[in-house]
Write a protein that binds this DNA or RNA. Structure first.
Lengths: 104, 104
DNA sequence: AGCTAGTATGCCATTTCGGGCATATGCTCG
DNA sequence: CGAGCATATGCCCGAAATGGCATACTAGCT
Protein backbone atom coordinates (compact mmCIF):
# COMPACT_ATOMS: atom_id res chain seq x y z
CA UNK A 1 0.00 0.00 0.00
CA UNK A 2 1.10 3.49 -0.77
CA UNK A 3 3.10 5.36 1.79
CA UNK A 4 1.74 8.46 3.41
CA UNK A 5 2.94 11.47 1.50
CA UNK A 6 2.72 13.68 4.55
CA UNK A 7 4.70 11.34 6.73
CA UNK A 8 7.45 11.41 4.15
CA UNK A 9 7.87 15.17 4.16
CA UNK A 10 7.57 15.31 7.92
CA UNK A 11 11.26 14.47 8.14
CA UNK A 12 13.41 17.63 8.10
CA UNK A 13 16.35 15.97 6.42
CA UNK A 14 14.13 14.69 3.66
CA UNK A 15 12.83 18.18 3.04
CA UNK A 16 16.40 19.39 2.80
CA UNK A 17 17.08 16.70 0.25
CA UNK A 18 14.07 17.78 -1.76
CA UNK A 19 15.11 21.40 -1.50
CA UNK A 20 18.45 20.46 -2.93
CA UNK A 21 17.17 18.22 -5.67
CA UNK A 22 14.82 20.93 -6.74
CA UNK A 23 17.87 22.89 -7.85
CA UNK A 24 19.53 20.10 -9.76
CA UNK A 25 19.78 16.36 -9.88
CA UNK A 26 22.60 14.85 -7.88
CA UNK A 27 24.36 11.64 -7.05
CA UNK A 28 24.16 10.18 -3.57
CA UNK A 29 27.70 11.17 -2.75
CA UNK A 30 27.07 14.75 -3.80
CA UNK A 31 24.07 14.93 -1.54
CA UNK A 32 26.02 13.42 1.31
CA UNK A 33 28.60 16.16 1.04
CA UNK A 34 26.16 18.97 0.53
CA UNK A 35 23.83 18.09 3.36
CA UNK A 36 26.39 16.63 5.72
CA UNK A 37 24.63 13.45 6.66
CA UNK A 38 26.13 10.00 6.66
CA UNK A 39 25.95 7.98 3.48
CA UNK A 40 23.74 5.22 4.93
CA UNK A 41 21.35 7.79 6.31
CA UNK A 42 21.21 9.48 2.94
CA UNK A 43 20.51 6.22 1.15
CA UNK A 44 17.73 5.42 3.55
CA UNK A 45 16.05 8.77 3.11
CA UNK A 46 16.40 8.53 -0.63
CA UNK A 47 14.77 5.15 -0.53
CA UNK A 48 11.80 6.55 1.33
CA UNK A 49 11.54 9.46 -1.07
CA UNK A 50 11.85 7.18 -4.06
CA UNK A 51 9.25 4.70 -2.88
CA UNK A 52 6.91 7.56 -2.15
CA UNK A 53 7.40 8.97 -5.64
CA UNK A 54 9.04 12.23 -4.67
CA UNK A 55 12.22 11.39 -6.54
CA UNK A 56 13.42 8.97 -9.16
CA UNK A 57 16.88 7.66 -9.88
CA UNK A 58 18.81 6.52 -12.86
CA UNK A 59 22.08 4.65 -13.00
CA UNK A 60 25.07 6.33 -14.46
CA UNK A 61 28.30 4.35 -14.29
CA UNK A 62 28.42 3.25 -10.69
CA UNK A 63 26.49 6.25 -9.48
CA UNK A 64 22.82 6.71 -8.85
CA UNK A 65 21.58 10.07 -10.02
CA UNK A 66 18.50 11.24 -8.19
CA UNK A 67 16.07 13.79 -9.46
CA UNK A 68 12.89 15.27 -8.19
CA UNK A 69 9.46 14.24 -9.46
CA UNK A 70 6.47 16.53 -9.57
CA UNK A 71 3.70 14.04 -8.92
CA UNK A 72 3.60 13.93 -5.15
CA UNK A 73 3.98 17.64 -4.82
CA UNK A 74 0.82 17.91 -6.81
CA UNK A 75 -0.82 15.58 -4.34
CA UNK A 76 0.07 17.94 -1.53
CA UNK A 77 -1.07 20.85 -3.58
CA UNK A 78 -4.37 19.12 -4.18
CA UNK A 79 -4.83 18.50 -0.49
CA UNK A 80 -4.17 22.14 0.16
CA UNK A 81 -6.62 23.37 -2.40
CA UNK A 82 -9.82 23.39 -0.36
CA UNK A 83 -8.02 25.21 2.43
CA UNK A 84 -6.93 27.98 0.17
CA UNK A 85 -10.28 29.63 0.39
CA UNK A 86 -9.39 30.32 4.01
CA UNK A 87 -7.21 33.16 2.94
CA UNK A 88 -8.89 33.93 -0.32
CA UNK A 89 -6.07 33.03 -2.64
CA UNK A 90 -7.19 31.93 -6.05
CA UNK A 91 -5.01 29.36 -7.74
CA UNK A 92 -6.38 30.32 -11.09
CA UNK A 93 -9.62 30.88 -12.85
CA UNK A 94 -10.63 27.27 -12.42
CA UNK A 95 -10.90 27.47 -8.71
CA UNK A 96 -12.82 30.69 -8.85
CA UNK A 97 -15.17 28.93 -11.13
CA UNK A 98 -15.59 25.95 -8.83
CA UNK A 99 -16.84 27.92 -5.89
CA UNK A 100 -18.72 31.02 -6.76
CA UNK A 101 -19.22 31.89 -3.12
CA UNK A 102 -16.02 32.67 -1.10
CA UNK A 103 -15.01 36.21 -0.40
CA UNK A 104 -16.67 35.90 2.99
CA UNK B 1 10.66 26.45 20.00
CA UNK B 2 8.04 26.33 17.32
CA UNK B 3 6.61 22.98 16.39
CA UNK B 4 7.18 21.50 13.00
CA UNK B 5 4.21 22.24 10.80
CA UNK B 6 4.83 19.19 8.66
CA UNK B 7 5.06 16.85 11.59
CA UNK B 8 1.68 18.11 12.73
CA UNK B 9 -0.11 17.30 9.51
CA UNK B 10 1.68 13.98 9.22
CA UNK B 11 -0.90 12.49 11.55
CA UNK B 12 -3.92 11.12 9.64
CA UNK B 13 -6.38 11.79 12.44
CA UNK B 14 -5.24 15.37 12.66
CA UNK B 15 -5.82 15.82 8.96
CA UNK B 16 -9.30 14.43 9.40
CA UNK B 17 -9.89 16.94 12.15
CA UNK B 18 -8.74 19.74 9.90
CA UNK B 19 -10.90 18.47 7.07
CA UNK B 20 -13.86 18.63 9.39
CA UNK B 21 -13.11 21.99 10.89
CA UNK B 22 -12.73 23.38 7.42
CA UNK B 23 -16.44 22.84 6.98
CA UNK B 24 -17.51 24.43 10.24
CA UNK B 25 -16.30 25.11 13.72
CA UNK B 26 -17.14 22.46 16.28
CA UNK B 27 -16.94 21.59 19.91
CA UNK B 28 -14.72 18.78 21.13
CA UNK B 29 -17.66 16.49 21.75
CA UNK B 30 -19.00 17.05 18.28
CA UNK B 31 -15.66 16.15 16.79
CA UNK B 32 -15.44 13.08 18.97
CA UNK B 33 -18.73 11.83 17.62
CA UNK B 34 -18.07 12.75 14.02
CA UNK B 35 -14.61 11.25 13.78
CA UNK B 36 -15.11 8.38 16.19
CA UNK B 37 -12.04 8.79 18.29
CA UNK B 38 -11.89 8.85 22.07
CA UNK B 39 -12.31 12.14 23.84
CA UNK B 40 -8.81 12.17 25.35
CA UNK B 41 -7.29 11.40 21.99
CA UNK B 42 -9.28 14.18 20.43
CA UNK B 43 -8.18 16.66 23.07
CA UNK B 44 -4.56 15.71 22.57
CA UNK B 45 -4.71 16.18 18.85
CA UNK B 46 -6.51 19.45 19.24
CA UNK B 47 -3.81 20.60 21.58
CA UNK B 48 -1.14 19.82 19.02
CA UNK B 49 -3.10 21.57 16.30
CA UNK B 50 -3.74 24.56 18.50
CA UNK B 51 -0.14 24.95 19.63
CA UNK B 52 0.94 24.69 16.02
CA UNK B 53 -1.49 27.40 15.00
CA UNK B 54 -3.70 25.31 12.76
CA UNK B 55 -6.74 25.92 14.90
CA UNK B 56 -7.89 28.25 17.62
CA UNK B 57 -10.49 27.79 20.30
CA UNK B 58 -12.89 29.92 22.18
CA UNK B 59 -14.86 29.14 25.27
CA UNK B 60 -18.59 28.99 25.11
CA UNK B 61 -20.34 27.94 28.29
CA UNK B 62 -18.50 24.80 29.27
CA UNK B 63 -17.57 23.94 25.73
CA UNK B 64 -14.52 24.72 23.70
CA UNK B 65 -15.35 25.65 20.16
CA UNK B 66 -12.53 24.99 17.76
CA UNK B 67 -12.08 26.62 14.43
CA UNK B 68 -9.53 26.46 11.70
CA UNK B 69 -6.88 29.13 11.17
CA UNK B 70 -5.41 29.98 7.81
CA UNK B 71 -1.90 30.92 8.87
CA UNK B 72 -0.14 27.58 8.88
CA UNK B 73 -1.78 26.47 5.70
CA UNK B 74 -0.17 29.45 4.11
CA UNK B 75 3.15 28.29 5.49
CA UNK B 76 2.72 24.98 3.73
CA UNK B 77 1.61 26.76 0.64
CA UNK B 78 4.72 28.90 0.77
CA UNK B 79 6.91 25.87 1.13
CA UNK B 80 5.24 24.35 -1.88
CA UNK B 81 5.63 27.40 -4.05
CA UNK B 82 9.11 26.80 -5.45
CA UNK B 83 8.14 23.25 -6.33
CA UNK B 84 5.20 24.36 -8.36
CA UNK B 85 7.39 25.17 -11.29
CA UNK B 86 7.95 21.42 -11.54
CA UNK B 87 4.62 21.02 -13.15
CA UNK B 88 4.31 24.44 -14.62
CA UNK B 89 1.37 25.64 -12.59
CA UNK B 90 1.28 29.33 -12.12
CA UNK B 91 -0.21 30.54 -8.91
CA UNK B 92 -0.76 33.89 -10.47
CA UNK B 93 1.08 36.48 -12.44
CA UNK B 94 3.44 37.17 -9.60
CA UNK B 95 5.12 33.82 -9.76
CA UNK B 96 5.53 33.99 -13.48
CA UNK B 97 7.21 37.27 -12.94
CA UNK B 98 9.56 35.96 -10.27
CA UNK B 99 11.18 33.31 -12.40
CA UNK B 100 11.45 34.13 -16.03
CA UNK B 101 13.40 30.98 -16.68
CA UNK B 102 11.56 27.64 -16.17
CA UNK B 103 9.98 25.87 -19.11
CA UNK B 104 13.28 24.01 -19.33
C1' DA C 1 39.68 -12.22 -11.39
C1' DG C 2 40.82 -8.85 -7.95
C1' DC C 3 40.29 -4.10 -6.48
C1' DT C 4 37.80 -0.03 -5.61
C1' DA C 5 34.34 3.55 -5.76
C1' DG C 6 29.52 4.15 -5.06
C1' DT C 7 25.48 2.80 -2.92
C1' DA C 8 22.26 -0.14 -0.40
C1' DT C 9 20.95 -2.99 3.50
C1' DG C 10 20.84 -5.21 8.12
C1' DC C 11 21.03 -4.83 12.93
C1' DC C 12 20.90 -2.36 17.14
C1' DA C 13 19.87 1.28 20.49
C1' DT C 14 17.33 5.24 21.37
C1' DT C 15 13.63 8.24 21.01
C1' DT C 16 9.16 9.75 19.79
C1' DC C 17 4.44 9.29 19.34
C1' DG C 18 -0.36 7.74 19.52
C1' DG C 19 -3.97 5.41 22.12
C1' DG C 20 -6.17 3.64 26.42
C1' DC C 21 -7.55 4.44 30.88
C1' DA C 22 -8.03 6.95 34.99
C1' DT C 23 -8.32 11.26 36.87
C1' DA C 24 -8.04 16.22 37.38
C1' DT C 25 -9.84 20.73 36.14
C1' DG C 26 -13.29 24.17 34.84
C1' DC C 27 -17.83 25.93 34.26
C1' DT C 28 -22.83 26.11 35.07
C1' DC C 29 -26.86 25.54 37.44
C1' DG C 30 -29.93 24.26 41.05
C1' DC D 1 -21.65 24.70 47.48
C1' DG D 2 -22.52 20.23 45.55
C1' DA D 3 -23.45 17.84 41.26
C1' DG D 4 -22.67 16.94 36.57
C1' DC D 5 -21.23 17.91 31.94
C1' DA D 6 -17.27 19.18 28.94
C1' DT D 7 -12.57 19.04 28.34
C1' DA D 8 -7.73 18.51 29.55
C1' DT D 9 -3.86 15.98 31.53
C1' DG D 10 -0.91 12.25 33.46
C1' DC D 11 0.87 7.72 33.12
C1' DC D 12 1.87 3.59 30.81
C1' DC D 13 2.63 0.67 26.96
C1' DG D 14 3.46 -0.74 22.28
C1' DA D 15 4.74 0.56 17.65
C1' DA D 16 7.42 2.91 14.50
C1' DA D 17 11.13 5.61 12.89
C1' DT D 18 15.88 7.49 12.92
C1' DG D 19 20.89 7.33 13.09
C1' DG D 20 25.26 4.78 13.76
C1' DC D 21 28.04 1.20 12.42
C1' DA D 22 29.34 -2.73 9.92
C1' DT D 23 28.77 -5.09 5.90
C1' DA D 24 26.86 -6.60 1.46
C1' DC D 25 26.17 -5.62 -3.24
C1' DT D 26 27.33 -3.86 -8.11
C1' DA D 27 29.81 -1.97 -11.91
C1' DG D 28 33.98 -0.56 -14.04
C1' DC D 29 38.89 -0.72 -14.38
C1' DT D 30 43.38 -2.92 -14.63
Amino acid sequence: MAVDVFAVIAEPTRRRILDRLRLSESSVTELVKLLEVSQPTMSKHLRVLREAGFVSSRIEAQQRIYRIEAQQFRAIDDWLTPYRQLWGTHLDALERHLDGQQDR
